[in-house]
Amino acid sequence: VLKYGDMMPELPVLQYDDSRLLPESYTGTFITSKEIEGLELNAGHFTEEARKSAEGRDSGHLKSIDVFGGSYKFTNNFTASAYTSNIEDVMKKHYLGMNYVFPIAVDQSLTLDFNGYKSDINSKYVQKAELTGDENTIWSLAATYAFGPHSVTLAHQRSTGSTGYNYGWYQDRGGVGDGGSTIYLANSYWSDFNAEDERSWQLAYGLDFGAFGMPGLTYKIAYVAGDNINTHGFGEGKEREIFNQLRYVVQDGPAKDLSVKLRGSWVRTNNAVQQNGYFDDGNEVRVFVEYPISIF
């Protein structure tokens, strides 16, 4: 399938941000192939970016982004994907993802999910964005045990290199320009826990109320703690976050598939992180309402 025009890509190296009333979008050419069973290949060349909740097709002042990669379903339980992107005058980014599901019983399973990025940053962009270095490697490994309507997740995430993981924002503002959701990592909620040399752990719990006669209603709570942040002279940086989300999807009737999410996050950082300018304390509550409309 060959497409040209305004699109909202959903790839690990180019993922649009829909956290505002109007989502980000990209203008370019995109081709997808699914000729081989279980294999999906994607390639694209994009030259314009529309900022979220902003007028103008190229309000993000993007130069160009080339993306290539794909995913393959090796077995019913194991899927892997690999992607690469070349963001003109900014960086080259490479991604690897693997997901394996271990069936334990009829209503029990253990899922292992790995995601990792390797970024090689252009020296001119390092100076423009005032970064501390020109390369970063970041990865996360999450283990989720699901039993009945419950799920428990334990995850570890680690960032190494001479700078933190950079993504999103807009090139005319000193950003990367590859989409505000281009961070397929386990510990990314309000804070991304993606600072230079940061290590973080997550413990999360999820509940599906469908088992209690309320189909479509789900809840998740997560606690993430990060440390070892290199603040370049201000001491060891630390941060922590509590994330909550209650979501309901209408199951039938005229409003079928209408989704309402209530999300709350509480982030706390130490003085070293605040003085370094990486992140600050904050409380956030958001409400998301989404309603898909099929035109054709």
Rank of each mutant, 00 (worst) to 15 (best):
N228L: 03
L262M: 13
L62P: 03
S71Q: 10
G180D: 02
I87Y: 02
S188V: 08
V67S: 10
G60R: 06
F147Y: 11
N99F: 02
V152I: 12
K220M: 04
V126Y: 02
F193N: 09
T144R: 15
T153V: 05
F78G: 09
D227K: 13
I121H: 03
G44Q: 08
V250E: 02
L207M: 09
Y278A: 07
G60T: 05
V273T: 12
S159F: 02
Q245D: 07
T111C: 01
N271R: 15
Y95R: 11
G264S: 15
K52M: 07
F243E: 00
D257F: 02
S259P: 05
G164T: 06
N230S: 13
Y278R: 12
L22Q: 11
A225C: 01
G70V: 05
R51Q: 14
E35H: 13
G164W: 05
G177F: 05
F193Q: 07
W201Q: 11
T32Y: 09
F68L: 14
A255N: 08
Q127I: 03
K118Q: 15
K238Y: 12
G116T: 08
D172Q: 14
K63C: 03
N228D: 14
T29E: 05
L110W: 06
I31L: 14
V152R: 01
D172V: 05
E10P: 03
N76L: 02
F212C: 07
V250K: 01
L21M: 06
A129H: 10
Y223F: 09
S19I: 03
Y100L: 09
R57G: 14
A272M: 12
N270L: 09
G206Y: 08
Y125R: 06
S81T: 00
A255G: 07
T218N: 08
E40N: 13
E236L: 05
E37Y: 10
S140G: 14
G177Q: 03
P254C: 06
T137Q: 10
F147V: 12
N187V: 05
K73F: 03
G264C: 06
N194D: 11
A50Q: 15
V273F: 02
A43Y: 07
W169D: 13
S123L: 04
T27F: 09
Y189T: 08
Y83S: 04
I31T: 12
L217W: 02
L258T: 14
N271S: 15
